[in-house]
Amino acid sequence: MAIFQITSENKVKKAKIKKFRNEKELQKLFERNLEEIFGIRFLASEFVTTHGGRIDTLGLDEDGSPVIIEYKEGEKDNVINQGLFYLDWLVDHKGDFELLVQKKLGPNVKVNWDSPRLILVAQSYNEYDIYAVNRISENIELKKYILYDNNVLFVENVVLPGKKSGTKKSRKTTIVYKEYTVEDHLSNKSEKIKDIFRELQERILKLDEKINEKALKHYIAYELDRNFCEIVIQANALKIYLDISKNDLVDPKNIAEDCTEVGHWATGDCVFKVTSLEEIDYAMSLIKQSYEGKL
């Protein structure tokens, strides 16, 4: 992707691509900015496994899922298989990971083992990398970066062919994941609540084709690289959590409440309820603010 710098004469100048000196420089930059780039809390670098391997980066995402990050600055052809090996190891050694979380983040932080993630970070991927990841596992993500002059870093998701949000593929790893669907959350709910949810779901997904819908155990999340909205489907209402500060939210009707000091499963900082189709327009005006904050 071409990036252009606007000069003082209102001209544009194409930014030149440059490279990191080595893979370690790439890794250190991402680790120091892990939460800003991916919404992942940093736990450890070069984590030594019981079989003598070294996991590049370990983290915990905003949904409480364990995350392994492996970097590929040059041609490291075994990074996918190596990452899968570490992912299997991690699930077999949950106690080691949970002790690390308690040490780094505190004893009250919960780990969600339903869907551990493997993120691969590289400047480019060949067709064999993309084919392999598309076939092997839903829980592997490819991230592409480009470093430009003036220290501009561009990071994007690599869209895998045939992969759709919310669908699961057969896997060749030994890990068994707990799967949840939107229909699980709608089960036994009234037709009124289902209609409200479907309308809101459609409106959210229309904001951007890159939005991913994730059905988790306690809520349904909507994300770009990071969550911007979570929905808890209750018997008589939709509870909407937004990943934006109450102080930054323009809310003329003042329906959103700060929930940072209140225990809740979702990742958002403020919450409000939707109880009718007539409330969706206003709800979307709040949701869009959280979405735009993640662009």
Results as ranks from 00 to 15, higher is better:
1 M>I: 11
4 F>C: 01
4 F>T: 02
5 Q>W: 04
6 I>S: 12
8 S>M: 04
12 V>N: 05
22 N>H: 14
23 E>N: 06
30 F>C: 02
38 F>C: 08
44 A>V: 00
45 S>V: 06
46 E>R: 14
46 E>I: 02
48 V>G: 04
49 T>V: 10
49 T>C: 07
50 T>I: 06
51 H>D: 15
51 H>I: 07
59 G>E: 01
59 G>S: 07
61 D>K: 08
63 D>L: 13
68 I>A: 00
71 Y>P: 10
73 E>M: 12
79 V>N: 03
81 N>V: 08
82 Q>V: 10
86 Y>T: 00
87 L>W: 02
89 W>E: 11
92 D>N: 14
94 K>F: 03
95 G>S: 15
96 D>G: 06
97 F>I: 03
99 L>D: 15
99 L>Y: 08
102 Q>N: 08
105 L>Q: 06
113 W>D: 11
114 D>K: 11
123 Q>D: 06
132 A>T: 14
136 I>S: 04
139 N>I: 03
139 N>Y: 11
140 I>T: 04
141 E>V: 02
142 L>E: 04
142 L>T: 09
147 L>G: 09
147 L>Q: 01
151 N>P: 00
153 L>N: 09
154 F>I: 00
156 E>W: 00
157 N>V: 01
157 N>W: 00
160 L>G: 09
160 L>W: 12
161 P>K: 05
165 S>G: 14
165 S>C: 10
167 T>N: 06
171 R>C: 13
173 T>H: 02
177 Y>H: 08
178 K>T: 15
181 T>D: 05
185 H>Y: 13
186 L>K: 14
189 K>I: 10
189 K>W: 04
190 S>M: 06
192 K>M: 10
193 I>S: 13
195 D>I: 08
196 I>F: 05
202 E>I: 01
207 L>F: 02
209 E>C: 03
217 K>F: 05
218 H>S: 14
218 H>F: 15
219 Y>A: 04
221 A>C: 05
221 A>E: 12
221 A>I: 00
226 R>Y: 05
226 R>D: 10
227 N>H: 14
227 N>Y: 12
227 N>F: 11
235 A>M: 10
238 L>S: 10
243 D>S: 13
249 L>G: 08
251 D>A: 11
251 D>W: 06
253 K>C: 00
258 D>G: 06
258 D>F: 10
261 E>P: 00
263 G>C: 01
265 W>Y: 14
265 W>G: 04
269 D>L: 14
272 F>A: 11
274 V>I: 09
282 Y>H: 06
283 A>Q: 10
283 A>M: 12
287 I>P: 12
288 K>W: 03
291 Y>T: 10
292 E>D: 15
295 L>A: 12
